[in-house]
Amino acid sequence: MNTKTTATESKKPGFVAKVRKGSGENAVYERIGVAWKNADGSFYIKLAGTQLVSDFMLYEIESTDQSGE
């Protein structure tokens, strides 16, 4: 099973990990890390800091490439 990226693949993360604090209109989302999707469909998740997290959400990062405009 090969999970290495090729030279043409981006090494930038494709997802951001966030936790929700609060509820309703007062809810805020704190970024706690990033994630990459491996070739086999699994995810490599890199959490930042030393927080204790029991659950989190992954959001796909929108492309900021504007070369097509």
Rank of each mutant, 00 (worst) to 15 (best):
M1V: 11
M1F: 09
T3V: 15
K4G: 11
K4V: 09
K4R: 13
T5E: 12
T6C: 02
T6E: 08
T6N: 09
A7R: 10
E9C: 07
S10I: 08
K12L: 15
K12V: 08
P13S: 11
G14F: 03
F15S: 00
F15W: 15
F15G: 09
V16L: 01
V16R: 08
A17I: 07
K21W: 03
G22A: 02
G22C: 05
G22M: 07
S23K: 14
E25C: 00
E25I: 12
N26K: 15
N26W: 08
V28T: 14
Y29R: 02
E30S: 04
I32G: 01
G33L: 01
G33E: 04
V34F: 08
A35G: 01
A35F: 07
A35Q: 02
A35H: 05
W36C: 06
W36P: 03
K37E: 15
K37C: 04
A39W: 04
A39E: 09
G41K: 01
G41M: 03
S42H: 06
F43Y: 15
F43Q: 03
Y44L: 12
Y44H: 10
Y44V: 08
I45V: 15
I45C: 07
K46D: 06
L47T: 06
A48H: 10
A48R: 07
A48W: 05
T50F: 06
T50W: 01
T50C: 00
L52S: 14
S54D: 13
D55P: 03
D55A: 13
D55I: 03
F56V: 00
M57N: 12
M57S: 14
Y59R: 11
E60P: 12
E60Y: 03
T64M: 10
D65C: 05
Q66V: 15
S67V: 12
G68V: 14
G68I: 13
E69R: 14
